[in-house]
Structure formats: structure tokens, C-alpha cells
Amino acid sequence: MRRKPKLAVWKFASCDGCQLSLLDCEDELLALAGAVRIAHFIEASSKRLKGPYDLSIVEGSITTAADAERIREVRRVSKVLVTIGACATAGGIQALRNFRDVAEFRSIVYAKPEYIDTLATSTAIAEHVPVEFELRGCPIDKRQLLEVIGAFLNGRKPNVASHSVCVECKLKGNVCVMVAHGTPCLGPITHAGCGALCPSYARGCYGCFGPMETPNAASLGRAFLAANVSPRGLVRMLRTFNANAEAFRKESERHEG
């Protein structure tokens, strides 16, 4: 029998939602526990095994100098490092600070600003250390997480498509909300993964999975403006969980101010 690989789950600046997706895999959790040794997963158990780890799953973004240091340590003890969620892959909602003055926030929001130790930006893990695979989403899709772990365990490539949400939308047979209802939808420039959840409920896509493989945000932005979305509205649509992802950031900056 092969040695069971050691799995570690790490948290940086994040809401824990993506890690919870792992605990939410009720039906598969036993199989997972059978296939790996969960060596470090604070959210699930306080028991910790020493590294090195075969697979590290990292949630959250880098927002402090201490975390910028800690992620290097995690990298050092991990054979394969997979980042999960919009925070770890793009900086998350907290990357909205990247567009503003953090020192000013600090002085306005906190009674004792001197207690706050933070970087001016929130950035993706891959901006700090090399990463083997980035799994997108806010939150991630648990089927995709199992697919990535399964692919790792079986030494194969994960089936995680990087095309638009539109492909999933059409596979499902949805009526396009953008064309048939005039609802602005970020699906054409958004990375697949959710199974076109929002268009399936007649909503436009909010872009949780970040930019797709070849995003043409400028063209979709023009289409939104032509459909009476205000420039301010367009900036808001692009600045959510993946505000700092390059394609969304650049397009939002073009329409600012």
C-alpha cells in the first residue's frame, strides 16, 4: 500500500469560507480521510503533524508583513502548493484597499490606529511564492476542490476549465440573461467553475471566479455602457471579490474618476 500523502490546510487573510467547502464535502469526507493524512487543518482539528507536507492548500491573501514571511515558510515545507479562493488567487474583497489610502482608513476606522499592523495592499499568494495550481472562486466550488485533490492523488491533470462562464451556461441550456433580459452579466469574461449559478437563477454573473483565460473586459465594458450602465456602476461591478485580478483591475481603473 502506498504511503498516504500528508495534507495541510493554511489560512491567511480570508473569511474561512473556502476551507469550509472542504468540511462541507460530507459524502466525500470519509474517502478523503482514507486517502490522505490530514496533518494540519486548524479549522477541523487542533492536532498537528510536523512537515514537510505533500499537499498544502492555502486560503487567504497576504495583507501583513508577518504573513508575507509565513507564506515563504509554508512554501518551504510543501511539495505541492495549491491556492484556493478569490483571496488567495487575487487578493479577495480586502484588495479594495489597493485602490485607496490605507493609512487614512486606519486613522478613521480604529480608535487606536497604532495597534494596526498592515500592508498597504492585499495580494495573491502567487505574487509572493510559486504556486502549482490556483483554484478560483468566492467561495470555491467543492466539486472542483475534490477534483483538484483527486487529480493530485492520482497524478493527473485537474479538469478545471478556464474558459468563460458562458460555456457552462450554454451546457445547462440557460437563456442568456444579457441578450434576452438586458441584464448586464460578467459571465463572458469570468472564469468557469460555478456551473453558471447566477444566470441559472436569472441573475447576471458577479464574477466570483475572476477573469477567464483570455478576458476582453474592455469590450464587455463598452457593451455595459451602451446598455446604460454608468461608468461608476461598471467600476463597482468589476470591484468585488476579484477587484485586484489584473483584467478586472485595469478595466475598472479605465473608468474611474
Partner: peptide
Amino acid sequence: DRCLACANCTLVCPTCFCSTVEDVTDLDG
């Protein structure tokens, strides 16, 4: 400059026939 490469045109086209295959395994293989 205008095209989103979103693939909608091909998926609604009644003659487009392209497909791909994916191999999937369960966790324990």
C-alpha cells in the same frame, strides 16, 4: 477587439460539433 472569446456563437450554432473528453477519477482512484 470586440470579440469576448466567450464561445456563445459556437454553442448556439446548430452545426458546430466540437467536443472534448475529460477523464475523471474518484479520490482513491
